[in-house]
Structure formats: C-alpha cells, structure tokens
C-alpha cells in the first residue's frame, strides 16, 4: 500500500513518514500543494494524507482538483482548524476523514489503514480468503491456522493481492503500490518476492494460491478467492 503525505511542516512530515513506513506502508512526501497535486493526480496512491495550510496551493484546492479529475483515492485531512463549518466543507468537498492537530500518531495510522480497507471494499481488519487469514492490524498471516512468517514486503504484496481478489495485478501496479520514490526498485524484485511468497504459503497438501498470468501479472486463484 502506498500513501502520499502532503505536509509543509518538515519535522511533522518526517515523523509521519517514519511512522507510516514502520507500519509497512510505502510513503511519498510532498512539501507543498503544487507538488502534492502533481503526485496525487498520478493515481497510484491507496490513500492521501493532506495538510490544509499549505504554501502555494491550499489543501482544500488540492482535494478539489483531485476530485474534479475523478480520482477517488481516500483522503485524510490534517487540520489545525476545528470549526464545524470548515470540517463540513471539507467532507463535502470530498475528504473521507480528518484529524485535528495535534493528533495521535497511532490514531492517524489506524485511520489511514481503515480508509484503505474501506476503499478496497473491506470493513474488518482481518481478511480471509479460502484457508488464508491476514490480520492487517497485527500484520500476521495464517494458513489453516498456522502462522506463516513473511517479510514486510512479502506481507505487503500479499495484502495488496488480497485486497483485490480475482483481479489481475500487474508487476507495474505492484511496484507502484509497494514502493515510494525513496526506494530503489526493479521489476525482478517483485518476481523474487512473489516466488518467496509462494514457497512460504505452500504448505503440505494445500493448493498453490498465487497464479501467474504471463505478461499480465498475478492473481489469487479463483477457487481460493471464493470465500
């Protein structure tokens, strides 16, 4: 999952980025409204955290422009204003959630995750497909009740695939959603992770879960996808 943070306050941004990365999200950071708009409109983000008081272009305008372009990325607004009006305005302008500064970092993370889940059409933090169970809060994976030990990247790839059951996910899409600009990435990175995932998930007597479609990408197997 990849998150865009648009926040001009350098130190605050550093902290939020660090916290988001620690929970296994890929994060890009824009320090002003123009850059934020530019990044957001690429449409590769699973959620956007948007500060309101931005130099150059206000957060409200970034949000409006995004929605005008028919991009429905969930947006969480960070604001130091608490007037009811401005919050109502924001929600009406297409914001999905808001947090007032000073906020709780843990709450921010939980809300971002909830937004991502909801945008993918899931409302509980535990995702289950066939005999596979993924707990997005504890970031643990079980198959047939047995804990499968995954690396953070493997977990993220699996989480992304589970969020899009039965859809074909290309390597490029996975790259876009797994990594932020700060990471060196190559397409064979994904291949390597997928093969590791397959190996770890393939317990004795189970069906292989991840299917490869040549030149198109990956998907969770149909029969596995039917819950």
């Amino acid at each position: 999952m990849r998150v865009l943070l648009v926040e001009d306050e350098q130190r605050l941004a550093e902290n939020i980025v660090a916290a988001l990365r620690e929970t296994g999200l890929a994060v890009d950071h824009a320090a002003d409204g123009e850059a934020g708009s530019l990044l957001a409109e690429q449409g590769v983000y699973d959620a956007i955290v948007l500060d309101l008081m931005l130099p150059g272009k206000s957060g409200q305008r970034v949000l409006q422009d995004l929605r005008r372009r028919k991009l429905h990325t969930p947006v969480l607004i960070l604001t130091a204003q608490e007037s009811k009006e401005s919050i109502v305005n924001l929600l009406n302008a297409g914001a999905d959630d808001y947090l007032s500064k000073p906020f709780d970092l843990g709450e921010l993370l939980a809300r971002i995750k909830a937004l991502i889940r909801r945008a993918k059409g899931v409302s509980t933090p535990v995702l289950a497909i066939s005999d596979l169970e993924l707990n997005t809060v504890q970031q643990t994976v079980r198959r047939r009740g047995q804990v499968v030990d995954l690396s953070p990247t493997e977990y993220r790839i699996l989480e992304y695939l589970i969020h899009r059951p039965r859809a074909v996910v290309s390597q490029r899409e996975l790259l876009e959603h797994m990594y932020d600009f700060d990471w060196e990435h190559h397409s064979n990175v994904i291949e390597a992770h997928i093969s590791n995932l397959r190996r770890k998930l393939n317990l004795a007597g189970t069906e292989p879960l991840i299917e490869t479609l040549r030149h198109r990408g990956y998907r969770l197997r149909k029969e596995a996808g039917s819950q």
């Binding site: 306050e9 902290n15 916290a19 130091a80 007032s100 500064k101 000073p102 906020f103």
Partner: peptide, 13 residues
C-alpha cells in the same frame, strides 16, 4: 498546535 503536533508525533514515533 503545529508545534505541539511535532513534539507529540516525535515522541509517539
């Protein structure tokens, strides 16, 4: 609020 948010987030991180 911004300054407090920074301090708070630093410690929470």
């Amino acid at each position: 609020k911004t300054d407090v948010a920074i301090v708070k987030s630093s410690l929470q991180l």
